[in-house]
Write a protein that binds this DNA or RNA. Structure first.
Length: 372
DNA sequence: TTCAATGGCGCG
DNA sequence: AAAGCGCGCCATTGAA
């Protein structure tokens, strides 16, 4: 089915381009879009050539026909080559299963990474992609449980910053992006529009990454002035968050490193660099690493606690099969899913005691897609 | 055939 | 001028 759709798309693209070419070759696509068709060059690659990246094509798609087709083609070939074609080849003939490697000493923040194959980037965001996730099925008589920490990085940020208002919002346990939107746009939560919520969500994430007003403006497609106003309002409502960002940068400058809640260090020699591009990059890491690193520590502690519990249990009703940064996946015998689900959730939520609650959402299904 | 660099994009 | 963190894998390209 994928193959059929791809062939049709290919024909349409060649027709619109007026020639055949290799659509997955950035070099050839550049030639078609920017030389042959003369489309505006909105952004450059690091090497200075006009970019054909997703965001650029999305913008071009507003005015032209071809970029949308390219994007669709890219999305489908990505799914086919990276997942549909590759994963079946990764099945171990002895076990009939795919076995990834979790690397424990790769990332700067303390996360695991997953290789050969990478099972931490299995699609979920699009409907077509979700079909791939649904191909991960439980054995007969078993179910898949997926247990996710909900907004764990935002909770850690609130804990680290000790911002009363943000902690209060998170303790309420409702839609946090909506609550933040209500705060910064001065609305009742029920009056928050989808657009307000989207903007607030971008700010919430952006803060965790150390994003600037410029970056937020680009992200939201608004003026820099407007983005600056948004961020000002945010810091008015959540003042300790802003103070924390400043404090952690100063700490990094003074000590040359930052730490997670549990003491995992990241050394940041560039924090004192004269070259401001490098210094700014180090400052973003100073903000992000304690947050991402604390989340990584917490899920690792949960994995250890759950593994201890499984060891002590009778029988083999539950197997911990995957970790995806803020999510644990289990294969559990159908008869005991509900009890095991409750225990897993409790162990994950109680593994650390922060100033805001840790919340875990759990799902059950015959496959990984359904379990979300 | 293998390797490295590049551009791109899947996930959290 | 550059301006959002962390990963790994794909196809293409040019060269060894």
């Amino acid at each position: 089915e994928l193959g059929d759709r791809l062939r049709k798309l290919e024909r349409e693209i060649y027709l619109a381009a007026g020639t055949t070419f290799n659509i997955n070759s950035p070099q050839q696509l550049q030639e078609i879009l920017y030389v042959r068709l003369g489309l505006p060059r909105l952004q450059k690659t690091p090497k200075g050539k006009p970019s054909t990246a997703e965001g650029v094509l999305q913008e071009l798609a507003l005015d032209y026909f071809l970029p949308k087709l390219i994007l669709e083609y890219r999305g489908l070939t990505k799914l086919k080559s990276t997942y549909s074609d590759a994963l079946p080849r990764a099945v171990n003939p002895k076990t009939g299963r795919i076995h990834t490697s979790y690397n424990q000493a790769v990332t700067t923040t303390g996360r695991l990474s997953s290789t050969n194959p990478n099972l931490q980037n299995i699609p979920i965001r699009t409907e077509e992609g979700k079909l791939i996730r649904k191909a991960f099925v439980a054995k007969p008589g078993a179910k898949i449980i997926a247990a996710d920490y909900s907004q764990i990085e935002l909770r850690i940020m609130a804990h680290l910053a000790k911002d009363e208002n943000l902690m209060k919002a998170l303790r309420r346990g409702e839609d946090i992006h909506r609550l933040v939107a209500a705060e910064i746009f001065n609305l009742l939560p029920e009056d928050v529009t989808e657009n307000d919520r989207r903007n607030a969500k971008a700010i919430n994430f952006g803060l965790i990454y150390g994003m600037s007003a410029f970056g937020l403006a680009k992200r939201l497609g608004i003026s820099r002035m407007a983005a600056e106003r948004y961020m000002e309002r945010y810091f008015q409502r959540y003042p300790r968050v802003g103070e924390y960002m400043q404090k952690i940068k100063e700490f990094a400058y003074e000590h040359g490193y930052v730490e997670s809640i549990f003491g995992r260090r990241l050394y940041l020699p560039d924090i004192r660099a004269k070259h401001f591009v490098r210094r700014q990059a180090a400052e973003r890491l100073a903000i992000n690493a304690p947050i991402q690193g604390s989340a990584a520590d917490i899920i690792k502690l949960a994995m250890i606690a759950i593994d201890d519990w499984i060891d002590k249990m009778d029988g083999d009703d539950v197997t911990m099969i995957m970790q995806v940064h803020d999510e644990l996946v289990f294969e559990v015998s159908s008869a005991s899913v509900t009890t095991i689900l409750a225990i897993v959730r409790e162990k994950m939520e109680r593994v650390a005691n922060l100033d805001v609650p840790l919340v875990v959402t759990v799902g059950i299904g015959d496959n990984w897609g359904e379990a979300h």
